[in-house]
Structure formats: C-alpha cells, structure tokens
Design a protein around this nucleic acid. Sequence first.
RNA 1: GCGGAUGUGGCGGAACUGGCAGACGCGCUAGACUUAGGAUCUAGUGGGAUACCGUGCAGGUUCGAUUCCUGUCAUCCGCACCA
Length: 802
Amino acid sequence: MTEAYNHKTLEKKWQKIWDDEKAFAATSDFTKPKFYALVEFPYPSGQGLHVGHPRPYTALDIVARKRRMQGYNVLYPMGWDAFGLPTENYAIKNHIHPAIVTKNNVENFKNQLHSLGYSFDWDREINTTDPEYYKWTQWIFLKLFKAGLAYKSEMPINWCPSCKVGLANEEVVNGACERCGETVVHKVKSQWMLKITEYANQLIDDLDGVDYIEKVKTSQKNWIGRSKGAEVDFELKGKEDKLRVYTTRPDTLFGVTYMVVSPEHPIIDKYKDEIKNWDEIVAYREEASKKSDFERAELAKDKTGVAIDGFTAINPVSGKEIPVWISDYVLMSYGTGAIMAVPAHDTRDWEFAKKMGLEIVEVVAGGENVQEEPFTNTTTGKLVNSDFLNGLEVKDAKAKMIEFLTEKGIGEQKTNFKLRDWVFSRQRYWGEPIPIVHCEKCGYVPVEESELPLQLPEVESYMPTDNGESPLAAMTDWVNTTCPCCGGAAKRETDTMPQWAGSSWYFLRYTDPTNKDALASKEALKYWLPVDWYNGGMEHTTLHLLYSRFWHKFLYDQGVVPTKEPYQKRTSHGMILGDNGEKMSKSRGNVVNPDDIVRDYGADTLRTYEMFIGAFELAACWSEDGVKGCRRFLERVWKLQDLVTDDMAYSADMETKMHQTIKKVSNDFESLKYNTAIAAMMALINDFYKKGSITKGELKTLITLLNPVAPHMTEEMWANLGFEGRLYQASWPEFEEAKTVESTVEIAVQVNGKTKATIMIGKDDAKEDVIAKGKEAVADKLTDNIVKEIYVPGRIVNIVCR
RNA sequence: GCGGAUGUGGCGGAACUGGCAGACGCGCUAGACUUAGGAUCUAGUGGGAUACCGUGCAGGUUCGAUUCCUGUCAUCCGCACCA
C-alpha cells in the first residue's frame, strides 16, 4: 500500500526542489523554439491574493508546463504592478511609506503564488516601482515627448473631490470616481497628454493580423470608434467666417434645415456683439456648464437649446438660409463642435426639430412619413429632393457628394474617432515622476537621459493638496532645479504618471530584466517577441491592452522593438463569483481565501478545481463541494499506485482510450478547454478502477498528462514509480491518430429520425451491411414503404418510411 | 438606445463539421464496510404509467436541429446625444 496522499509535506517538498533546481528558468539559448506565455501581473494589494487570480495563472501555467515538456524554451514570468492609489491611500492613513507597504504586500503575494506551485521564472521578477525599472518607463516617456506625442494641455479634467485626483475617462464610472464613488466634477488643469489618437488607425487595422478572441477585437474597435464622413464648410450669411461641421451623411446635405453648435463653440464669442439674445445665450451656457457629463447624458432624451439671433448660415449646396442654434446635445469634444442638422434622417436632430418646431425635409426615400419618425437606415433608400443626387443609392450619393464638395473646395473627406488622447498626469505621490522641467525661458525641457531614473524623493506627507497639486509640489528643494537646456532656474514637473504607465511595456522587460543599458537587449527582444499568448481580464481590453499596444507601436516606429504588435494571441478568463452567484466582496461576505483552500485541500486541488469549474471564458460560481470532488479525483489518481503492474506497454483493451485521452488533453490544453481535459482524465481513471489494474506505462502517461494541472502530486508519483529524472523534464506523451479510432463502435438506428435501437458495427463495415443490420434491429418498426436509407459512417443509421 | 455575451437535469457544466442530448463533477437515493461516518467502496439518478416528452419561447429548413435560418422573451456585461 502506498502511503496516504499528504499534500502538505509533498507540495512544500517539490516547491523547494523546483526552486533549488531552477526548474522553470527560461534559457538564453536562442536557437531553441520559444514560447512566451504571459499573464497580467497583479497589483499587490493589502488584501492578498484573491481566489480569482489563480484561474488565469493556472491556465497559462498548464500551457507553459506542457510546452516545456514539448521541448520549447518557455518564458513564463511574473512581477508586480505596484504603483497605485490603494497603496498610497493606505500610506496616508497609516503614515507608512508606500514603498514599505508595497514591499510587504509583494512579499505576501509572492509567498501565496509560490504556494500554488506556478512555474514562473522568478529570476525575472520585476517591479514597476523599482527605480531600475521605472528608469525605462521614464525613458519611454522622454521618447514620446521628443517625438511630439507627449504634450501639455489646459483642459477640463475629471476631478474627484474626495481622492483629490484627476482621473482618466476610463476611471469614471457612471459619473462617479471608480475608486471611491464620489461624483466627479470638471476642473481645468494643465495636463500631460499622450497622443494615442495618432495611432488610432493602426490600432484598428492591425487587429486583423493578431489572434485575439473576437470580443476583444470588437470592443477595441468600438472604443476607438472610427467613423468615415466629411467635413463641410457652411458660410455664415454676410460674414467672413465659415462654420465647419463633421458629418457621416454628406449624402443628406440637401436635407439640412438648421445648424447646431456646442455651447462652448468659439464662434459664439466671436460674434457676441451682434447677437441680439446674448443674455439668453449666456444663461443657457451657464446652465449647460453646470451639468456634469453624466447629467448631460442622463438628460439625453430631453433636448434643450436656444436659437442664435444674430447670424444665419447658408446651406452650401441648396443656397438656402438656415438658422443656427446652440444646444448641449452637440459636444465640443467630438468632430468640430458644430453639426449640420438633418432632422428627417437623424434621431437626435429629429427630436430637436420636433421640439423646436423646425422644418423637416425628406431627402432619402424609403421610410415612413419623416414627419412622424426619422428614417435613419443607411443601407437602403434612394435620394430625393436633392438636385444632382436624386435617384442615387445612399452609398453612391455619399461618394458623389464628397467628390462635389472637394471639387468646389467647400469640404473634404474626413475620418473621426471616439478615442481621445490619454490624460497622463496624476496629482499623486506614488507613481513615476514625469522627467520634465519647466523653464521660463526654454519651456518644457526633458531631463537628460543620463539623469534617469528620476527618483521619487522622500516626502513628509503623501496627501495631495487641496488645490490639486501633487504632494511633490511641497518639496521645494526637489522642485527647484536648473534647466538642462540653458542652465537657468527651472521647476520640475510635480505630477506623476498613471498606473497604466508601468504596465504598458512590462512584457519587454521580462525578456532581459537586469539590463542596465537598454530596456532590454535587441537580441532578447528579437527572440522573445511577440508574446505568444497573453491572457488577461476583459476589463483591461480598452485600457491596459490598448495603451500597451499604443506604446509598442510607438517603440516599433522608434526602432526599439522588432514587432508591430506586442501580443500574438489574447484570451480572457471569466470571473469567479461567490457561491451565491454574486461578485465576491467583503461586504457580501462571500470571499474565499485561496490560502485556506491550499491549507485544507492543497494547491493541486485548488488548481484542478479552478480549471474544472467551467468554461474558461465565462464567469463561474465557487463551490466548496466542487473543490472536494477535485480532491477526491486526485486521491483516486494517487491510489492507482496500488493497482499498478510492471508492464510498460499499454494494455490491449486500454490502448484506444489512452490514445484518445492524449489527443483530447493535448488539444484541450491549447484551446482553453481545461474543464473537458480534466473530465477526460477522470473518465480514464474510472475505466482503470472498473478494470482493477493499470500498467506502469499507462500510469506514466496519465501522470504526465495531469502534471501541468497537478504538478506536485504527479511529480511525487513519478519518483515513487522509480522513473528517471524529474517529471517536469519528461517528454509530453505522443498519440497515433490511427489508434484513436475504436475498431468496433455502437451506433444508433433511427426510424424517421427517432432512435429505436443500437447496433455494434466494425469501423470499416460496408454501408449495405450496416444498413441491413440496422433494418434487422428495427424490423418490427418499419412499414413496407421505405423511402430512404441513410448511413453516416460510424455515426448513425436512419431509415425513413411512410 | 447601441454593442457584446448567455439561456441545456436539483446544481456546475458536456456534445466534433447538423448525427444516440445530459460526458465529467457535485448533490441525492439505496446498499457494503464500520462503534461511528460529514471517510471509502458498489449500484442507481432528466421527466413520465407505456412504443411518449424533453436544450428560454414561437415558427422554419432537414431523413435528422442544443447546433442552421426568422421572429421573440429573459438575464448579465460594456458604451452611452460620437453627428
């Protein structure tokens, strides 16, 4: 009898051995085929590892371990995305330096990850708060600055009055601060911006060349929001100025019956003196500016606005004079801040026109009465009331109109994006200092590269100031410096970078984490890039994933990295919910601590369970009973040691099943179907128990297949069985396609599509023989009038009769 | 409103390219072994009185539909006046 399965001693033992042997270090032998597997590095929070973390980590650990056994040089690294608000807030509250908080949290996280037996290459561990790391984050920023992609801009930012910090659009959820829930207000501040919009086209187009799951591609495309249309100039009657608008429907130009400009539009101030209802305009503007973005959106249904009494515009194609209104349904931040209104064919314009009693002119036929509802369909319909466009389909009318506008010099084709430039400044302490100084004479001047890293100074207090300055602003001896350009007095930038900075390039550093002269060597980058498989949360699709693609494309243009895209393949895992089906949270009291599971059941059980819990991409509910089931499975595998024979071959009756299982597990591990891979192994061992024995060869294959999922236990069994070396060094089992097919199969016999019997047939039996055998099996259910006989080889026989 | 998913036993979930729906696990039932069982093992387990009915609902295509098509409902997640 083998002794009982004791996960506690066994898991510690093997973790130590793997460490001592540096079992999972990626080698620098660049001649071997490589495989770079990546999971999103965690933010080391004070709460420690969550039961959701192991799901993706285990999934790619499985792939990494399997690929190593298949002879790949595998890079599977881990690190810490350690700058960020929670740490800073904790530091403020407890008067501990955030660096110390970070250090403690990282230590805790690392112990936890270690206890799960991941095959990370710990020699390549990185930390975004390490000056030797953020030196290169700053270096990239300088590159961006020098290339004109980092610029300063006075602009209204999302301001959280509680956190006292500017937020990126992405950090504002339903008009509230993502972290504290306080309502976000606008505040004008001079901010560092990154011109991600410069790469908008590439960020969409290059998605065609990568293997991302479809929903990731779709959300990125929608987020970037490319739309093709035209810009058109409208003359203001009797004025020099023209009012430029953006439209995706140049074909409807003849249907323009009025124009609307955003309340902030500069044209209003310019003609202030001529506007007769100025008081009314001012009142409306004030009302609009008081509303937050959220309120503006909330009140979307109810259109408001004021007609400008002072100038009118001329429809450039019809020559008609039309009124100009202001309304907050037109945003200054998109397009030109002014629109041409086509109420017959745009829902918003229609609502506005109805409310204000403006004219509605149909120019695309095909809808109902446009006085009753707008006709917005763009795929069908012919132009009417549109002079030279009459009779054309929408698509052709668009092209013709753009041609016309271009020729006449009153407009041109134009592509717009919803994507905005990235607000890159944070009025916070715990982030990378922005390596720029401001000199009265020379303006914004980059810090010399040789001065990097520009280290965070020690400060007394991490509290941001009430006026919105970073805590660094109070450090006068740090702030006051000399201009690298003219040597005169200058001031350092006191804002820091957002958390997204460090994570935008971390996968590059793993390839060569200790390099002092570059963010990584050319050779390492050339060999390891792109990342072969990157898994991470859906919530990062439009933030981290997009930002890092942007930086990567920039670095490619700068000749720093060898590939246009950072990640070849992107997958996403589902969330793990509490046992009540709700999101795990302290307040709901449904949080499961992975440490408890590791202690009570073992890391191998936790890993197996999280892979078995359900379809990898979908959310899944935690179930302690499910954990027990997986533990039971592992125990049953363990106890197979009592049934093992000395035979190294597969037994005759199990051979097909062995080959089938190898095939299934090998394929499933590569296609996110960990649950069915484990189910296949469960089914296999059920067969061995039914039979009462297993050959040594069969058990060897089984534990090798199971090793990526439950590495500790299988490694111990490998040693127990007296096999050479380590299991992690063994080769992945091979299967023969021919041997995966049963020589005889049971198939169903249907009459009129309903199963009435089953028969056993040989895999190569002739069609006629099988049909005859099938008919015999269901003879009593057939009528004389047989219409059709169908045989799908190895599947089914169907006899159709009246 | 727009976009993306998801609806299959008591529960989590399987099902290749349209081919025996419910693999695998949990739970449950009965039995065995036990002083004991919340351990383990064995057998059973979609519903139903039958040759019948069953994959959210209603249609359709097909010899045959969880799978394809049309419509519809519900839930979840994003985005939200983007001209």
